[in-house]
Each structure stands twice: as C-alpha cells, then as structure tokens.
Nucleic acid binder design. Structure first.
Lengths: 216, 216
DNA sequence: TTTAAGTCGACCAGGGTGGTCTAATTGCGT
DNA sequence: ACGCAATTAGACCACCCTGGTCGACTTAAA
C-alpha cells in the first residue's frame, strides 16, 4: 500500500492539495459511509481511475486523511503551545490564537477532524485509533494542566471559575466563527476581532481574578 | 392532503407517537435527503404501505414533523417563559430550566429542530419557512429583550457582560448535556445538577453584578 | 520506436431509494 | 352471518448512486 500511496505523494504539491481538500471536505460533510468517491473526483477535477490509482480504496484514502490531519494538528497547532504558561487566560488566549491560525491555514482539516473524532474507531485500524486517543489526551493536558488557580478570586471555587472562563472564551470563539461563516478565514483581517476579544478578557480578569487594589 | 393526514391523526396516540418518534429520529440523524423511509417503517414496526397511507410522500411526512415540532417548541417551551423578568440571570435560568424540561419530554423534537433550522427553506413551502423564521425571532426576543443591564458592574461594557453571562450558562448546559449522552433525559434526577448550576450562578452574580457591599 | 507511467470515464454488479399495488385481514353496520 | 369498507403488510418497481475495474488513450522518456 505504501508503494501505492507513494504515487500520490510524488505528485506535485498543488495537485495533492486539490485532491486532499476535496476529499477532506467530502468526508467532513458526509462522514465515512455516506461520502462519495464520485463527488470527490468531480470536485478535485480528476478522473475516477486516478483516485484508485493513488489510493487502492476509499478506506485507504480515509486513513491517509486521518493521518494527515493528525500530523497537521499536532505540528501546526498543539506543538506550538507553551504549556509552561500558568495563567489560565493567557493559556486559553494562546490556544485560541494558535487554533485560529491553524484553522485559517487549513479549515477543512479541522472540520474533518471533528468528524473522525466523533465517528471513533469505526473504519480505522487500532493503530490509528490509538494515535487519535493520544492527540485527544495531549489536547486535554494543554488545556487543563499546570494552571495556577491561586490567581482567581478567593471567594469562589477555583474549579468553577476555571470552567466559567473557559466557557466564556469558547463562547466568543464559537460566536465569531458563526459570524464569519461563508468567508475564507485566510482572507480575513482579524485585528479588530482580537481587539474585541481582549476587551472581553479584560472584563474576565477584572471579574474573576483577585483584584490587586483590594487592600485599599 | 389534510384528508390523508387525518388518517394519521385519528390513530391512537401511542401509535402516532411511535411513528412520529421513529421519523423524527431518522430525519434528525440523516437530514431530509438521506433519511430513509425504509428505516423509519422498520423502526416504527409498521409496513411500508402504512407510511404512505398516512402521508402521501416523504415530503409531506417531513412537513408534518416540522409543523409538529414548531408547535411543540412553542407550547411546551417558549410560551412558558416569563418575558417580564428583567434580571438576566433569572431569565436565562428560566430559559435553561424550561428548555431542559421540554427536552426531557421529547428529546427527538429538539434534535430534529436543529436539523431543519440548519437545512433552512429547502424542502419546505414558504408558508412553513415563515413560521420557522417567526420561531427564531421569538426565541431571540425571549433571550435579548427587556433585560435590565443596570444591574451589571459599572466598570464594564454591559453588552459584553451580557454575552459573557450567556456564554457561561450555555457552556454549562452544553457540557451537562454532553456528560449525560446515552441516558434517557426523562429518567434523570436533575436535582444535584441544578444545585451545581446555582453554585455557578452565584459566582456569576458575585463577579458580574454590582456588589451591594461596595459602600463599606 | 518501444516501453511504461499516467489519465480518463464508461461500465459493472449490487444495494438502497421513494413509492405502488395486490392480496389478506379486520371491524362494523345490518 | 354477511358484505362492504377501512386497514395492514411487504413484495415489487424503476431508478439512481455506490465503490471499484478496465481497456483505450496520451504523454514522456529511452
């Protein structure tokens, strides 16, 4: 099989990209079972024969895409996070910024990953399923580990404050993404949104962190 | 057509319910196009002929379900909200509680409504599309209108505080629903969750509302 | 000119589709 | 007890789309 995938990998990058994006989108929208190889080749602008020349089967194509996505998310997103940052808001801001950047670079990968994370081990060899679990774990740690909760206001359960801050930031991110549907992420000037975002963060800090002027 | 749907409506309620739930679930999971009438009749335990005896076509079945869901959401959820409540947290709490109750009563309706809200006007006569728009509008008003923002802390943009509180509450609700997947909502004792929820609300109030003891 | 890699899309068998129809059963009015 | 109409089941239909194959054709290198 590697012999065959090699055929795909020795294509010029732009062609690989076209095919990959078409396939990622098809699987992202329809899931494994209902994805259609016919639609993929049409969207990619290649003949049916080529897809099965590059990949022996739908299954193999799917596995290739999962592998590709895992590597992309790892290298373009998770690896760039500074896990040493103890301040929750700083950490989440970093996560948000890096995720947004990675998403702007290849939105389909993230949409597709939502699908295979949800579809689970079906259609996948355990070797790949294990890698997915690894990634999940890794993401979880990046979000929850090594946060200094002593900065939160003392009159509230820090665990809960932690969650409230996370939900707030997720909420903003989600709403922004919804507001931006239809536009190409890569072409958007995010500066004003980051400004807006920082205004929200300032309120979060004022509200949930121990205030410095308390000794007045 | 009404003549034909009447056949369905004069069935005994429990049978109507079985068929309706099977159809709601099928459309909720697969969307209009990919939903299968074969799977519906199998899940409902009736013969193929019956479905097209009660409803002339897949299309008509779909429209019936949309109509049913709109009425359900309106009467079992939106109509029960007290739009006079000016306190944001109270209002959102009410919304959350009523939605949870309605969802426990018929979860499929909510899953299905997510689908037809997203699929939009496709497969629907404008008359029904208009009703959907009405419902959206109505829900929007219930969430945003008549809120007294003067209760928020004065040192932050009330608009932003408003959003932060909403995102927090949505976040909790979403996470709870995720934690509870697989269980029958109707069989769950929500008491401990409400307690937890109120603890979050207390923190939100402490953090985002004008504190009463500021004049100390 | 020969050879081999690359490319295409018509084609295949199989399975699923929404919808129809026949034939059997049931229930009711008499 | 009879007959008629309402109800029911599922075999069946023509059609469409599926993943995958294959032979014909082009290109490029040797």
């Amino acid at each position: 099989m590697d012999i065959i995938i090699a055929r795909f990998e020795s294509l010029e990058e732009s062609k690989q990209h076209t095919i990959r994006q078409a396939a990622l989108e098809e699987f992202a929208v329809h899931g494994y079972k209902k994805a259609s190889t016919n639609r993929i080749v049409k969207a990619a602008g290649i003949g049916k024969g080529m897809l099965f020349y590059y990949f022996t089967s739908k299954q193999e194509l799917y596995e290739y895409l999962v592998k590709y996505s895992l590597e992309f998310i790892q290298s373009r997103y998770l690896d760039r996070v500074d896990a040493g940052e103890p301040d929750l808001i700083e950490r989440l801001t970093q996560l948000a910024r890096l995720k947004m950047e990675a998403q702007a670079e290849n939105e389909e990968v993230f949409k597709f990953s939502a699908v295979f994370l949800q579809e689970g081990e079906t259609h996948l060899p355990k070797e790949l399923a294990a890698k997915i679990e690894e990634l999940k774990q890794s993401g979880y740690q990046l979000m929850y580990e090594g946060i200094d909760q002593s900065r939160f206001r003392k009159d509230a359960d820090p665990e809960k404050v932690f969650h409230l801050i996370r939900w707030s930031i997720d909420g903003y991110q989600q709403e922004l993404l919804a507001r931006l549907t239809g536009q190409k992420l890569a072409e958007i000037d995010f500066a004003p949104y980051w400004e807006e975002f920082y205004a929200y963060l300032a309120i979060l800090k004022k509200s949930f962190y121990e205030t410095e002027e308390e000794s007045r």
